[in-house]
Amino acid sequence: MKKIEAIIKPFKIEEIKNALDAIGVKGMTINEVRGYGRQRGHKEIYRGTEYNVEFIPKVKIDLVVEDAMLERTLETITEVARTGKVGDGKLFVLPIENAVRVRTGESGPSAL
């Protein structure tokens, strides 16, 4: 099993959710986060005053998939999240040793 952490632009979340549902991804956790990468924030003007926005609003999606679904899931997220502009996001893949469904006690991939 693998955990995917996807940091994406907030307006893409519904499209990604629908695309992942379509390929059979069963669940995910979503957090609103702020951060920056290479873009290092940006400048905005509010009521005539310019100020720096150092941390850009993003959405972080956490999901765990079986190894067989990893590549398809990564391709789906990448394809849907891509706008071709700076700040499209990042995907991180981490190994998962085990998962346990609290309600039933099932463990391993069947707990997903």
Score class of each variant (00 low, 15 high):
Leu74Gly: 02
Leu20Pro: 03
Ala99His: 10
Gly105Arg: 14
Ile4Val: 07
Leu70Gly: 03
Ser110Asn: 11
Arg34Gln: 08
Lys58Cys: 00
Arg38His: 09
Ile30Glu: 02
Lys60Cys: 01
Asn98Phe: 09
Val59Met: 09
Thr49Met: 08
Gly37Leu: 06
Glu5Cys: 14
Val64Leu: 03
Lys90Ala: 01
Gly105Ile: 15
Asn98Ala: 03
Ile16Gln: 00
Arg40Lys: 15
Ile56Met: 07
Ala99Asp: 04
Leu63Phe: 06
Asp21Pro: 09
Leu63Cys: 03
Val53Met: 02
Glu50Tyr: 12
Tyr51Gly: 03
Lys43Gln: 10
Ile23Phe: 03
Gly87Pro: 01
Val65Tyr: 06
Lys90Pro: 00
Ile61Tyr: 02
Glu54Cys: 08
Pro10Asp: 02
Lys9Asn: 05
Lys26Val: 12
Met1Phe: 11
Glu75Pro: 05
Gly108Val: 12
Glu14Val: 13
Val100His: 10
Gly24Trp: 06
Lys9Pro: 00
Gly84Gln: 08
Asp62Ile: 15
Lys3Asp: 00
Tyr46Glu: 05
Val53Glu: 00
Arg103Gly: 01
Thr83Ser: 05
Glu32Ser: 14
Ile7Gln: 01
Ile45Asn: 10
Arg34Ala: 03
Leu63Ile: 14
Ala111Val: 13
Gly27Val: 14
Thr29Val: 13
Gly87Val: 12
Gln39Asn: 06
Asn31Met: 15
Glu97Ile: 15
Val93Gln: 05
Arg72Tyr: 09
Thr29Gln: 10
Val102Asp: 01
Ile4Ala: 04
Gly48Ser: 04
Gly48Asp: 01
Glu32Ala: 15
Lys85His: 04
Leu91Trp: 07
Glu14His: 11
Glu32Tyr: 14
Leu20Ser: 03
Glu15Leu: 14
Thr78Ser: 07
Arg34Glu: 02
Tyr51His: 10
Lys17His: 08
Phe11Cys: 03
Arg72Lys: 13
Leu91His: 05
Ala22Cys: 07
Ala19Trp: 05
Lys12Ile: 08
Ile96Phe: 12
Glu54Ile: 14
Phe55Val: 13
Glu106Arg: 12
Thr76Glu: 01
Glu54Gly: 09
Arg40Tyr: 09
Arg47His: 04
Val86Cys: 03
Arg34Met: 08
Asp88Ser: 07
Val33Gln: 03
Ala81Val: 10
Glu50Val: 15
Glu15Ile: 14
Arg40Ser: 05
Met28Thr: 10
Ala68Arg: 12
Glu75Lys: 14
Gly108Ser: 07
Arg47Asp: 01
Arg72Val: 09
Val59Cys: 08
Ala81Lys: 07
Pro10Ile: 15
Gly105Asn: 09
Phe92Asn: 03
Leu94Phe: 15
Thr73Phe: 06
Val33Ile: 15
Glu79Leu: 13
Ile8Gly: 01
Val80Lys: 04
Tyr36Gln: 13
Val33Thr: 06
Thr49Glu: 04
Thr83His: 07
Val86Ala: 04
Ser110Pro: 02
Ile45Glu: 05
Glu44Thr: 12
Ile7Asn: 01
Asn52Lys: 15
Leu70Ile: 09
Thr76Arg: 12
Thr49Leu: 07
Ile30Lys: 12
Glu14Phe: 13
Ala6Met: 06
His42Lys: 11
Lys43Pro: 00
Thr76Ser: 02
Ile45His: 08
Asp67Phe: 13
Met28Gly: 06
Asn98His: 05
Glu54Arg: 15
Thr83Pro: 01
Val86Ile: 14
Asp88Met: 10
Thr73Ile: 09
Glu75Leu: 15
Gly35Tyr: 10
Tyr36Val: 12
Asp62Glu: 12
